[in-house]
Amino acid sequence: MAAITKERLVPPSGFRRRWNRSSATRTAWLYLAPAFIIMGIITFYPLFYQVWMSLTNYGIASLNPNSPRYVEPAFVGVQNYAQIFTGELPVAIANFNFWNVLAFNLLWTFTNVPFHVVIGVLIAVLLNVKGLWFKRFYRAIYILPIVLPSLVIAVVWRNMFDSQYGAINQALSAIARLFGGDPVTVRWMEQVDPIIRLGPLPLPLSYFALLICNIWLGWPFMTIVATGALQSIPGDLYEAASIDGASSRQSFFKITVPLLRPAMIPAAVYGIVATFNLFNLIYLMSSGGPLRQTEILVTTAYRLVNEQRLYGSAAAFSVIIFFVLLGLTLVTNRITKATERYDA
């Protein structure tokens, strides 16, 4: 003990300092080693392998080197990338167009997240009203969409949107019957004809079914984030505003919204990336259909492996997804930075 205290008082010699520092460094590398050795093998190596694969014609024949029909994957340059962008894959996929998938993927993301944020904030504000009864009861119920596995939610909603036996059509039929109407048989998941066309982008009923399900799924997270932020806004601000004659609408837009912004923007960025890659919901609910109209990038990449078995093309597709996500992250970060100073 004493020796150590003394050592701290006397400035350590150069050797001592270097020894201390290198001991810390050695410990650090030792602590990093297990994780990075394992990630090196199962994370980073496959990623580099993927880049190489994306430049070859890796197909089903290249899978098993011991098979008599084994074909060594051949280097084909950027052919896979070119084929993806032009839509002419080695195994034809009906209605495949990369640009439509990308456009739908972006539209899907940017129609979902605003609903999540706006509904989430409004419900958080409603739950935060002073003197409201049963707050804990509502909070306990509203958490449910988050705690259920998304896989289960997707398959349950898939069945709920069934045209003949689904709960949605049955509920609509019950309402219709009240007014003397016929049973409703909306073909939510199957109807091919789009409801709206946004330029070249068709939006079928299944898009709206997915949107409804994902809004149901997405807002509670935003409510939780907003509730945390709301509770840290000092009540004095509202009192002061009401003394100055501000209406409740004014204090919402001039106090609540600007002070929620720093908490909501990171949550929205998180939501954007999560929604952009929402594989489970889309694959299990609409399977990208009908006619691939609700396919997103990750479901297409999965199909290239799972159905077409074009491993080289799938690798190229994943590399493209990586750069799209990189771009998306950089753009959203830039927007976040630009809007960070809410007092400006």
Binding site: L63, A314, T329
Partner: peptide
């Protein structure tokens, strides 16, 4: 190293399915 970990995090699980399938095979 932190950047390397973050970069991997950005990629969805489906994004590495092709090489993992081929390599584990």
């Amino acid at each position: 190293l932190m950047l390397a970990v973050l970069t991997v995090l950005m990629l969805p699980a489906i994004g590495t399915i092709a090489p993992l399938f081929v390599l584990l095979n």
